[in-house]
Design a protein around this nucleic acid. Structure first.
Lengths: 151, 151
DNA sequence: AGCATATCCTATCGATCAAGTAGGATTCAA
DNA sequence: TTGAATCCTACTTGATCGATAGGATATGCT
């Protein structure tokens, strides 16, 4: 589960938009609020706009706002908009893999891993990510303190 | 959750070793069994050896075998041996992230996502991956047929 | 009209990494 | 001694990531 810089930035921008919702916020204000390169933030906001996750307003007093309610947009949608699919195995979707011999059962494993990732990113909204008010299932995942240990 | 070619190859090699355990199998036999480039397979087997997951025997009749019982080695260990950590956010471990403003709660989200990934890859052994006899929790993740749909 | 402030578009860049290849040195059993 | 295997170093090739540059276009205010 590698989240790229683009992905991380996109989520940070999105939760910032969520807390300001429904006001529009300019790219430079967003970049300043999260200490990101402004130009790069613009590129990312372009991706989010093309995915119809944000609306943009041009001109003075312009900026960006979430296209839908913050409680209605999942973190997974944001990540998919800027990086591709949440889960890939050697560049393919998990269900597209296929093997011979001892490896025949691996597609089920890849699909299970994807389902696990989805069960986090697709079940947390921007509103929840902003407030820290995560669903119980998610909160439980972070409760065990070995969840916070590198491995 | 991106699994690289190295990662995929490593798991395929590992389950092949698991089914043949405890016989030693040569790199070319492994490469042939899974239709991988032989030289690349050698590189990967070198990684697995340095991680002490496989032992190697040189010379004629040499080859590779699992260093531990197939029921005792997890898929996660294999993946970590060839790619790095299972989960990273912008090149950092989830627990090392830290944000200001609206993004303050994101580290918990990253940690939850990592826990979800671990709950699959660290809970499935090579023996289980080879036989397809997954733990109930994992099997449940693949039961819903929308787990098999792209999103 | 003119100006300031935005978004938006195209292009480029350097560094890094992924995937795979090449060639040969070394080890070991028969 | 020979053949088959691991092991080591180096290299290549292409793609991708994380930006940056420069300006065209839209909008509101005075």
């Amino acid at each position: 589960m590698q989240v790229s810089a683009r992905g991380e930035y996109a989520v940070r921008i999105a939760v910032t938009l969520a807390t300001g919702h429904p006001r529009t916020i300019s790219a430079s204000a967003l970049a300043a609020a999260q200490a990101l390169p402004r130009k790069f933030a613009e590129v990312i906001l372009g991706d989010l706009r093309r995915a119809h996750l944000v609306d943009s307003v041009r001109g003075v007093e312009g900026g960006y706002r979430l296209a839908r309610d913050p409680g209605d947009v999942s973190v997974g949608e944001v990540l998919r908009a800027v990086d591709g699919p949440l889960s890939e195995v050697r560049g393919r979707r998990p269900e597209e893999t296929s093997y011979e011999g001892a490896a025949v059962n691996l597609p089920r494993l890849w699909v299970a891993a994807r389902a696990a990732v989805r069960s986090v990113f697709d079940e947390v909204s921007l509103a929840q990510a902003a407030t820290g008010d995560f669903p119980v299932r998610i909160a439980e995942l972070t409760a065990a303190d070995d969840a916070w240990m590198p491995r």
